[in-house]
Amino acid sequence: MKRWINKTPSKTLAFVLGVIPFILVMALYQWGSDLRKAENPNDKLLPSVSQFYSAIDRLAFTPSKRTGEYLFWKDTLSSLKRLLMGVACAAAIALILGLITGAIPLVAANFNPIITTISLIPPMAVLPLLFIVFGLGELSKVMLIIVGITPFLIRDLYQKTKEIPQEQLVKAQTLGANSVQLINRVLLPQVLPRLLDALRLSLGTAWLFLIAAEAIAATEGLGYRIFLVRRYLSMDIILPYVIWITFLAFLLDWLLVHASKKAFPWYHSAK
């Protein structure tokens, strides 16, 4: 008999094995929900599937009685807007700083100590400061995401720039490249797919800061809604929202992977 470490599942088996935990979790939930409902039909902690449906229908497909808006979509839109703005700004700052510090040792000596220091500050600790400086509006929430993920991105891109083989830099110089050309034509194009990799890693953190900021000061947004309805123990809203956020996170990750494969085929097939 083969050793366990040498046994690999077929595609079908791998799929079945992967699906089993999901089914188990759902079955477990259903069982728990039924159990609690049998004891107290008004139980709010583990709502039934039909309660989820009516909650989703109320928020996503029925206009709100007060404002006439579809709250679920409004929340999604404003959260995604904040998230994407924050991530895009962080990516732009990190690309420029990471690339230049990675390429030019003098700039690295100048900037790396302060970047390292800033990256050690817990972003949530400066959230009050952001609210004071940038107000309670959109800007402070976007700023929290930027403050939260930019230092990591800069340091990662610095490292990735450094990892481009020295041989290529020497080669480019023997082909007559000056420093600016070398950054433009050799380093930048090779760092871009690595930036997308780094963004995938930092998206989870970006969601964390977004929801934290929305929980504290907002009038709409996925995180805001979850924390709002928590007061009424509305598990029928909180759980679908959490699943929706998970799906959005998965979708963004998927988009980044596919954009990268489409734009940088040489990067993915060389790996």
């Binding site: 082909l175 007559g176 490249a177």
Partner: peptide, 24 residues
């Protein structure tokens, strides 16, 4: 250079020569 096609790999030094900033 892994991100350039074979032709571009050879032509890049001509681009360095003629385009001092962009190198393109």
């Amino acid at each position: 250079f892994p991100h350039l096609s074979v032709r571009e790999n050879v032509a890049i030094s001509k681009e360095f020569e003629a385009s001092p900033i962009l190198g393109r």
